[in-house]
């Protein structure tokens, strides 16, 4: 996994940079490339920038809302509000995203803090998986992307909620040990002294209203870069696939119901898109893949993808992460086919 990440990401970006060098240098290479097929280069540019421009409003909205909450609402308040009964707790965790429309990238550090502050781990973990989907920003962007099929936005929300409730109930029953990596804190202290991630409380970090507003802007513009690189990478891969692979080839994979869903889930895992913007990418595969496959993409991606697994492994014990990922894969695969059968 880590190998894929370590090798894949630099390779892809090396490709980006190589192209960039070609464009900037313009020493005959560019004209050679252009003479090959300028139309393809143009299509690539139109698709790449189309996706990026389309996602900007949603990323910015998510980043700013998340930053505002991060700075203005203390974790202790949330920990205090958390119910004690498992079923109520699981529902609370699944629906917390309605109040905290965080992206999955902003989710894990927050949950880690919440668990340290006394939130039951199973609730925190359900929040990690439900939050990126069951929230108003993501619903709006999905609804916008699938204007022709409003059922998709509802199906995405409903299926994610159902799966997270199942996951939460299982965790509340079987998760006895603390799922956090025991030495994460000490490790961080030994490595770079950045323990502030674990103990920093935003409500006290910044002073006064303007101090907090500045902190919000700081958080938002930094997070924009953290998330932006994944969005651009995702847009890049999507544009490459769409300009170079024939529709028939994709349709061949997407033809089978099981293989189509599994393929789109794999794609969602690799692309690691932000949940606020992945609906636009999914919509671009509309008509090539069955609705069940698109639904699987939309539900699995925000829960489990390359970057979130890496973040999870850094925070939680490996066994727990592996068990949850396998469980989620099975639930999303089955659930998307069933939901599409009944609803879409």
């Amino acid at each position: 996994m880590t190998v894929v990440y370590r090798v894949g990401m630099p390779l892809l970006t090396a490709g980006c940079l190589a192209m960039l060098a070609l464009i900037l240098a313009d020493n005959g290479w560019l004209s050679a490339l252009a003479s090959l097929d300028p139309a393809t280069v143009q299509s690539f540019k139109l698709l790449l920038l189309g996706i990026i421009l389309e996602t900007f409003p949603f990323i910015l909205l998510g980043v700013f809302v998340s930053a505002l909450l991060q700075v203005f609402v203390s974790d202790a308040t949330i920990a205090r509000l958390t119910p004690k009964h498992p079923v109520a707790g699981v529902l609370f965790g699944s629906l917390l995203g309605l109040l905290f429309p965080l992206c999955e990238c902003g989710m894990i550090p927050v949950v880690r803090r919440l668990i340290r502050k006394g939130m039951p781990p199973y609730i925190g973990m359900v929040f990690i998986f439900a939050g990126p989907i069951v929230n108003p920003v993501v619903f709006t962007s999905t609804y916008t992307a699938f204007r022709g099929q409003p059922g998709m936005a509802y199906a995405r929300l409903g299926l994610a909620l159902a799966i997270c409730v199942v996951l939460g109930l299982l965790l509340s029953r079987f998760l006895k040990r603390n799922p956090l990596k025991r030495d994460a804190y000490e490790l961080a202290a030994a490595n770079n002294g950045a323990t502030s991630i674990y103990e920093h409380d935003h409500s006290q970090g910044a002073k006064g209203f303007w101090g907090r507003m500045a902190a919000t802007l700081a958080h938002a513009s930094d997070e924009l870069f953290d998330i932006g690189k994944y969005v651009i990478l995702g847009a890049f891969l999507t544009a490459v696939v769409q300009t170079s692979v024939d529709r028939e080839v994709l349709a061949g994979i997407g033809g089978g119901t099981w293989s189509g869903s599994a393929f789109m889930m794999g794609l969602a895992f690799l692309l690691s898109l932000c949940s606020t913007s992945d609906a636009f990418v999914a919509a671009s595969f509309n008509g090539i893949f069955a609705p069940s496959a698109l639904l699987a993409f939309l539900v699995f991606g925000p829960m489990v993808d390359l970057k979130s697994v890496l973040m999870l492994l850094g925070t939680f014990r490996t066994k727990i992460v592996a068990a949850i990922v396998l469980l989620l894969f099975a639930l999303v695969l089955g659930g998307s086919l069933l939901t599409a059968q009944l609803w879409l």
């Binding site: 990401m9 630099p10 970006t13 090396a14 980006c16 940079l17 192209m19 960039l20 464009i23 900037l24 280069v41 143009q42 690539f44 540019k45 139109l46 790449l48 920038l49 990026i52 870069f225 932006g228 690189k229 651009i232 990478l233 847009a235 890049f236």
Partner: peptide, 20 residues
């Protein structure tokens, strides 16, 4: 370089290639 390059690429394409 890689991270910032990823942001530069779409910008460069957008500004340098003619509209079509």
């Amino acid at each position: 370089v890689i991270v910032y390059g990823m942001f530069v690429l779409p910008l460069a394409l957008g500004f340098l290639l003619p509209e079509a």
